[in-house]
Design a protein around this nucleic acid. Structure first.
Lengths: 333, 333
DNA sequence: CGCGGTTGCGCAACCGACTGCGTACTGCGA
DNA sequence: TCGCAGTACGCAGTCGGTTGCGCAACCGCG
């Protein structure tokens, strides 16, 4: 493997100094057309590519951004990652994956490491499960950052209108004649889940219907497995609701569906089921899942846009971009 | 935003030079126990993390590896990514995501870009769909590389024994009394699919059963949508098989299952169905999917091990690590 | 007391690219 | 022909680490 060609090599070949080559390559003016052409030609000829580390060292820029991600096996997370990476690619930045799932054992220092390693110019933070303590750590992250899904006041955020989304979905169930609606939430991601619960309850209240406490079940995680437990819960309930709104998301709903059918319920006859997320997966379940779709592509674009802006201008006022959800009506409700 | 702490800061605080600090941190000998302890303590206290660019500059290493990935919305890909990232994290390397899906429009130059950008020390290549042309381009990639899933002679590979896996699954179906087995393959990933077909046919042959051409259906992609088309195909067939082996994978099988039930077939009564992959998802379908599991975690470990070895020693002989699959017996067959 | 060998650490030269400042050269007008 | 403005480029330092070389202090031993 031959040594990579450096800026000095180019300089030597062009009979100038490295400084001159650097200026040409960075489009500075005050370089004669002749030398400019010569250098550009040489660079092209030898396929010169500047060394990332060297440039990063002096410019304090790496042209890559990090993304903090929970378990990728949950399809929603994978979908978010795809959306983000699709938005990032055209910008020339690259994506560095910080997998919280993979770093479970040293998570405590993850934030600090990320910021001090100096590998990234900014962070997209998609990890719903935030405790007080996490938030504290986040603040120590002196890096441009955009939070995905949550809404915090002191940092740029991208989110959907969870309350509105849940409200509309619940209204839809009501319009179908359901009067008893079970809610399947999650212990994690309190903020997001709480907003959805609020929306659902608002719809019930406006229809003058009560919400019974035992019709709320909170799963311990966002897995399909948790959905099975939820289905079991409602199966064992004396006064069963006629509809289930799985505000914990489509993947949980996937488990709910499978378990309910296992228990010989017919969907949507015995239970109407609505999910939340609008994953591709949801249309390949049986029955096809009615769900509240999040516009992930738009959200990802917004997240990247916000992040790049903040990288340019670190102390502009923080911003929250909120997107509307849309109800996808399919078979399950 | 306060400045990050550098090696020089540590040196000043410890009354030594940066060189000494560097040696301590890199575990070189010939440093007295006293100063070593003092420096280590200071580093710990101030949470010192070396600047990656600076280190990369002198060592000609970036300490990150790239991963070339197809569409993350296919759960198998997401599962692979999680496995890889879990294996990478403890090594201190970081993962740079090159999303083929996201770079669809400039895919042609992707390989060249990756190698010339110089951001990574090596590449994990997980992109089943390889044409002659892709292979050519791969060879131009003068970077340490490990190919995931495919088997190539001139590069390190990690794969499963597809033939054996398919053979055993088919035997299982035969043992359940099925004599007509439909195979659902895929146009892409010819090598992998071909091996599985071979395995399935071998099992049939050994049982003295013929394989009928119209019992093979090839999907156009690895999506659940493609699975629905496959289900339609077998639905319309005059002489239907009694079992379907979805060698194209669990996600395709997910679509197959949904569509078959939609067409009022009962699984496994009317069709026994077996998948391939062993995704988490497969146990949350209805009925729970019997499937051939790939040991992704082990495979990921092997891939990283091979890659790091090759980064150290670029011209050692290439190696292929092949893993055994295991049949997970659940309800669908 | 002097010698050779070890240990512990500083000095300074890098790695490759960028940049502020200084200077040589150019051409033009007087 | 001289002076001046402006252009074109070199010099040297910087970023944060790593590393080879060498010096000094210490050791035990004769």
């Amino acid at each position: 493997m031959q040594k990579r060609i450096t800026i000095k090599d180019l300089a030597r070949m062009a009979n100038v100094t490295a400084a001159t080559v650097s200026m040409v390559l960075n489009g500075k003016n005050s370089i004669s057309e002749a030398t400019r052409k010569k250098i550009l030609a040489l660079a092209e000829l030898h396929q010169y590519v500047p060394n990332i580390s060297a440039r990063g060292l002096v410019k304090a820029r790496t042209n890559s951004i990090g993304i903090i991600m929970p378990d990728l096996v949950e399809p929603f997370n994978a979908a978010v990652l795809r959306a983000i990476s699709t938005s990032v690619m055209p910008t020339g930045y690259r994506l560095l994956l910080y997998d919280v799932f993979a770093s479970a054992n040293w998570e405590k220092t993850l934030y600090h490491r990320i910021s001090s390693e100096g590998r990234v110019d900014g962070i997209i933070h998609k990890a719903l499960e935030m405790t007080e303590c996490d938030l504290k750590r986040l603040e120590t992250l002196q890096l441009p950052m955009v939070v995905f899904e949550n809404e915090l006041s002191w940092v740029d955020c991208v989110a959907v209108d969870n309350e509105e989304g849940a409200y509309l979905a619940t209204q839809y169930l009501l319009s179908k004649g359901h009067k008893q609606i079970g809610l399947i939430g999650c212990d994690m991601a309190s903020q997001v889940i709480a907003a959805r619960v609020t929306g659902a309850k608002r719809a019930l209240r406006e229809a003058d219907l009560p919400f019974e406490v035992q019709h709320y079940f909170s799963t311990k995680s966002f897995t399909a497995n948790a959905g099975m437990a939820a289905a079991d819960y409602f199966h064992g309930l004396p006064n069963q609701p006629t509809a289930l709104f799985v505000i914990a998301g489509d993947y949980v709903a996937c488990g709910v569906l499978a378990r309910l059918r296992k228990l010989d319920y017919e969907i949507p006859r015995d239970f109407a089921v609505i999910g939340f997320d609008g994953l591709e997966l949801s249309s390949f379940l049986y029955p096809q899942l009615t769900t509240v779709q999040q516009p992930l592509d738009k959200m990802a674009d917004a997240a990247i846009e916000l992040l790049l802006q903040r990288i340019e201008e670190r102390d502009k006022p923080t911003e929250i971009r909120k997107f509307k959800t849309s109800l996808i009506i399919r078979e399950s409700a």
